[in-house]
Nucleic acid binder design. Sequence first.
DNA 1: CGATACATGTAACCGGTTACATGATTTT
DNA 2: AAAATCATGTAACCGGTTACATGTATCG
Lengths: 198, 198
Amino acid sequence: MLTTLEYALLGLVGTSPMAGYDVHKLFSSTPLGHFSSSPGAIYPAMRRLERKGLLQAALDRSIETRPRRVYSLTERGAGALEAWLRQPVTREELIRDTGAPILRFVLGEARLAPAEVIAYLEGWRATSEAYVQELRGHLGRMDADRALHPRLALERGIRGYEGDVEWIGEAIAEIRSRLGRGAEAAGEAEHSHGEESR
Amino acid sequence: MLTTLEYALLGLVGTSPMAGYDVHKLFSSTPLGHFSSSPGAIYPAMRRLERKGLLQAALDRSIETRPRRVYSLTERGAGALEAWLRQPVTREELIRDTGAPILRFVLGEARLAPAEVIAYLEGWRATSEAYVQELRGHLGRMDADRALHPRLALERGIRGYEGDVEWIGEAIAEIRSRLGRGAEAAGEAEHSHGEESR
DNA sequence: CGATACATGTAACCGGTTACATGATTTT
DNA sequence: AAAATCATGTAACCGGTTACATGTATCG
C-alpha cells in the first residue's frame, strides 16, 4: 500500500504527465485534497514511485538550461492506481483518512466507468450511514445533562456524515443525468456501449 | 507547540487525572477526536509531556502487583493547555488539522468561561465563512462543463464548512440558553457572578 | 535591478504506525 | 483452562515538516 499522497501523485500524473513542480503548483493553487505543496514531500515521493516502477521520468530539455523531470504512469502504476480507486470506502477511512474517499472519487473520473463510480459512491454512502448509526448510538448512551460540549461535538460529527450521504445522492443523480446526455451524444458514433463494462 | 494528540492528553488528564490505559480506553471506546488508541502513540506522548514538566506522574499501588502511572496536570501544563484553548481557529487548521478546532471546543468546556467559548466559536465561524468564500471563488473559476468530479468534490467541501457555520450558530444558542438557566439556578447561592469572568 | 516565478533537490528532526514483549487479573 | 482485559512499555520503520541550498528566467 502507498500513502494517500502517493496515490494522489499517481492520479495526477495519470491524467497528464507532469513534473514535480506542476504538482506543487496544483497543490498550492487549488484545494485539491489539501496536500502539502512542500518540495520535501513531493519530490521524494515521486522518486519513491519511480523506484517502485509505478512512475517513469523523462528529462524535458526544451528549455536547455533548466531540465524538468516529467513523470508519466507506467503500466504497473496504472494498475496500482486503478486497484486503489476500486477500493470501497471503509469505516477507518471515514475516521482517520478522510481525504482518501474524496480523492478516489475525483481521480476515478478519468479511470473508472460511470457505473463503477456510482457503485463506489453507493458503497461510501452505505459506510457513512452505518457510521452515523454508530455515532447515534454513542449519542444515546451519553448522560443527558452533563457534558454539553461532547454532545454538541458528536452532533456536529453526525451532521457531517449525514451531509455526505445527501451529497452522494445528488452526485449520483448528476452523474446519471450526464450518462443519459452522454449516451445520446455518443450514441451514433459509439452505438451506446463501451462505457458500461470496463 | 505540541501535537494535537499531546493537547488532547493534557485536556483529558486536566479534567481528571488518569493513566495511559484510561486514555487508551477512552480513545478506543468513544469517538473522541478519533485519535489512535495504540500504546505506541499514547505512552511515549505522556512521557514527553512529563519530561517537559506539563504532566506529573504518581504511582498508584492500590493494586499491589500492577502499578499504574496516574498523570495529573502541572501548573505549567494547565497554562499550556489554556493558552492553546484560547487560540482562534485558523484557516490552516480548517484544512490540515481539522480535528483541532473541535477538540479545543470540547476541552474548553472545563477550562474556559462561557463568554470565551462563545468568542471562540464566533472566530471559528468567521474563519469558516471566509474559507467558504475562498472555495466559492475556486468554484466560479472552474470551467463549467469539463471536470465534473472536481466540481462535485468542491461543492462537498463547501457544504461541509457551511454545515459547520450552521452548527456553530446553534451551539452558541444552546450555550447561551444554558447560561441563562445556569444563572437562574445559581443566582441565590452565587449572586449570579463568578461565571462571567473566567 | 530586485522580486517573483521556475525547478529540483537534500538533510535533520520528529512523531505516529506497527509489531513485539511481558505479565497480572478477571471472566467464561 | 483459555480468553479477554488490565497495564505498560520498547524498537524499527517510515514519511511528512521545516529549513536550507542552488541556480535560471521572467517581469516590473
